[in-house]
Nucleic acid binder design. Structure first.
Lengths: 224, 224
DNA sequence: GGAGAAAGTCAAAATTTGGTCAAGAATAAA
DNA sequence: TTTATTCTTGACCAAATTTTGACTTTCTCC
C-alpha cells in the first residue's frame, strides 16, 4: 500500500508542486495550507509529515507538538531558518529531521525514503488485526481462518489491509483506489468491484461469513 | 550502561575535541583517524558512529558501506561537502543523517540523542541464525547443513544473511538490493532473481527443502 | 411497477511478474 | 599474465495477476 504523506505549508503553490512530485513517486499525498487544516487531515493517518516551520497564525514548532499528541510518525521540517538553536528546538519539539529551503527534490525524496524505512523498522507492534475469528497479519501479509491460511494476491491483500485497519468506516471506491494504488483512478474504478468480489468469495468460502459490507451509494465497510 | 560512540575523522585535533566533549556528556567514546583503524574499532560494537566523509585513502562513503556489512547502528556523516547529490549518496550508502561542518555542538548532541533514542528499540540480530536444521553463522559467514558446509558467494551470503535475519518478513527486490548492495538499483533489479535461484538450488540440493518463499507481487520471504 | 444508477458477475485480454538459461563483464585467484 | 569464479544482463517463457468490458442483478426513488 502506498505511503501517505501530509504536506503542511501556507504556500499553496509549493504544496501543489510538491504534491504532484511526490505523487509521481508513488506516494499518496494530502496538503494543508493552515494549521487547522493540517490537524483536520491527521485523520487520514499519514505515514510522514512535511511541515513548514514558518506558518502564520500558529508556529510550526507549536503545531509539531500538537501533532505529536495525536499521531506518531516522522515529521520533517521545511524551513528557511538556519540558526543552530532553531534546529535544536525543532528536534526537541518532536521533529525528526530538518530540511532547509531551497532544497533539492532528490534530497527530499531520499530523506523521506530513509525516514519511512526507519519508521517501518521501529514501529511494528500493532501489526495483527483480528476480526470475527479471522487473523490478519499485516507484517507477514498473511490471513488465517483458524489453522488454515488463505491466500490473497497483492492488490487483494492491500484492500483487505486498508479496510480492516479502519473497521466500520465506509470508504467509497475512489478513496479505496487512492489508498491502495497510491493515486487517483482515472475514469473507471470498476476494478475495485472485481477485487472485492474475489476477496469476498475467498473469505466466504473459508469462513462462511461476510466481512465486507456494501453501503449502497456510499462504498464498502469492513464489519467488525 | 553508557552509549558507545565511534568517531572517525582524519583530523586528530577534531576527534580529540569531540571525544572530550561527548565524554563530558556521559558517552563512551573511541576515535579512529583512519579507515583501517575505524574498521578495527568496530569490534567494540559502537551504538552510533560519527563518520567524516572526506578521508584520505578511503572514501567515507565506501567506508560506510563496509561498516554496514558488519554492524547495524546509526551512522551520522560529518562533512564539508554540500551538494545535493552528495547528500543523496550518503543516505543511500546507508548513512542515517548528515551534519555539515562547521556544526554546533548543541545540534550535534541533539541529533545523537535523537538517533540513539530511535535506535533503542532496534534489537540487534543474533550472530547465529538457525532455521529448520540449517545453521547460519553470521560472524564467520558460514552455512552448515548438519556436518556439511555449504559454500556461497559473497552476494549470495549477503542475501541469505539479510533475509534469514528478518524471517517471515516479505521484502521486495528493491529493498533487498538496497540492503545488500548498499544503494538503490538503477533500473533493473533482475540480479536478485538470479541470485535467489542460485541460493535456492544450493539449499535445496543439500537439505531438500525450501527456505525462500516467493510472495507474488511482493517479494521474497525467509521461511522459519 | 419501471427507469436509471449502482453494484455484482463472468470470461477474456492485457499486463506484470518470476523462473530459467546462456553469455558477456567484472572480479578474484593462481 | 592467464585462469577460474562470481556477478550482471537480457531475452524468453510460463504463470499469476490485474484490468477491461459486456452483461445481469439489485436497489432507490418516482
Amino acid at each position: 500500500m502506498a505511503y501517505r504523506i501530509l504536506i503542511v505549508d501556507d504556500e499553496p503553490i509549493l504544496t501543489e508542486l510538491l504534491s504532484t512530485h511526490l505523487q509521481d513517486h508513488g506516494y499518496t499525498v494530502s496538503a494543508a495550507n493552515s494549521s487547522a487544516e493540517a490537524l483536520a487531515k491527521l485523520t487520514a493517518k499519514p505515514n510522514l509529515i512535511l511541515l513548514d516551520i514558518n506558518m502564520p497564525g500558529m508556529d510550526g514548532l507549536e503545531l509539531c507538538k500538537v501533532i505529536r499528541n495525536h499521531i506518531v510518525c516522522p515529521i520533517l521540517f521545511l524551513t528557511a531558518r538556519i540558526t543552530e538553536q532553531d534546529k535544536v528546538n525543532g528536534l526537541r519539539a518532536g521533529g525528526d529531521d530538518y530540511i532547509t529551503k531551497p532544497f533539492g527534490l532528490q534530497e527530499l525524496l531520499a530523506r523521506i525514503e530513509a525516514h519511512l524505512r526507519r519508521d517501518e523498522r521501529n514501529n511494528r507492534p500493532p501489526e495483527v488485526v483480528t476480526s470475527q475469528g479471522l487473523i490478519i497479519n499485516l507484517s507477514d501479509r498473511k490471513v488465517f481462518w483458524n489453522e488454515q491460511e488463505l491466500s490473497f494476491s497483492k492488490r487483494e491483500f492491500d484492500i483487505i489491509e486498508f479496510l480492516s485497519s479502519n473497521p466500520n468506516q465506509v470508504f467509497d471506491k475512489e478513496r479505496i483506489y487512492e489508498a491502495v494504488w497510491g493515486y487517483d483512478a482515472e475514469g473507471d474504478s470498476s476494478v475495485i468491484k472485481e477485487h472485492i468480489r474475489k476477496i469476498r468469495a475467498k473469505l466466504m468460502q473459508a469462513s462462511g461469513s461476510e466481512y465486507i459490507e456494501t453501503v449502497w451509494g456510499m462504498g464498502y465497510r469492513w464489519k467488525k
